[in-house]
């Protein structure tokens, strides 16, 4: 079965968040309007892709690593069996894991089970959303928006993911748990 996946060279990543904003620009995720919508004292923000900065070491030898992460469209997604209403499916043609917004009841079980923090609860809609792999773009032969934006060419995708995860960054969940479709060099 075809499997969509990511190729990610974090050595090249400069932590600029172009991928994260590209995702928002493509998917129009909140906050789009200004001023931002506030719920429970916080701006409503739904980010399908996020860039984490991991600082370590000690002066004068500090370290900093950037990690960009979205849904890894796992071969064995933990979110799928966790959904009590069967709203999460894996597309047979692409391997993309999707949430059916109409079926989602906002229980957030998927959010708790995902080791990569991919499902995002939308405080405004009361439902969970996540990366769609830009299926609408892939359907017409275009790469996901995050991949085309990456300034340092750290992030790319493949429609035919095979093989293992390579050398993931520190803190990356054990790949054997869900078999994520992401490869690090």
């Amino acid at each position: 079965m075809p499997q969509f996946g990511w190729n990610l060279d974090l050595r090249r990543c400069v932590g600029c968040n172009a991928c994260a904003v590209a995702c928002k620009a493509e998917m129009n995720t909140p906050p789009v309007q200004s001023p931002m919508t506030v719920r429970y004292g916080k701006a409503v923000a739904v980010n399908y892709r996020m860039v984490y900065t991991v600082d370590g070491g000690a002066y004068p030898a500090p370290t900093r690593t950037f990690v960009t992460m979205s849904c890894n469209h796992c071969a064995s997604p933990a979110c799928m069996p966790a959904c009590p209403v069967g709203a999460i499916t894996k597309d047979a043609a692409t391997g993309i894991v999707r949430i059916d917004d109409a079926a989602c009841i906002g229980c957030r079980y998927c959010e708790w089970t995902c080791p990569y923090g991919a499902p995002q609860f939308n405080e405004a809609s009361g439902k969970v959303e996540k990366c769609s792999g830009c299926a609408h773009r892939q359907a017409v032969g275009l790469a996901p928006a995050c991949a085309t934006s990456c300034p340092a060419r750290a992030l790319d995708y493949t429609a035919d993911f095979t093989g293992g995860t390579g050398t993931p960054p520190a803190g990356f969940a054990d790949p054997s748990l869900t078999v994520p479709s992401i490869r690090f060099p």
Binding site: E26, M27, V32, T37, K127
Partner: peptide, 24 residues
């Protein structure tokens, strides 16, 4: 926010997962 929505093109309204993405 009402003023904001008035200025924003309809196609740019905040999406949920069920919203149609932008035309390709």
């Amino acid at each position: 926010v009402a003023a904001a929505a008035a200025l924003l093109p309809a196609v740019l309204r905040e999406s949920t997962a069920s919203a149609a993405p932008d035309p390709t």
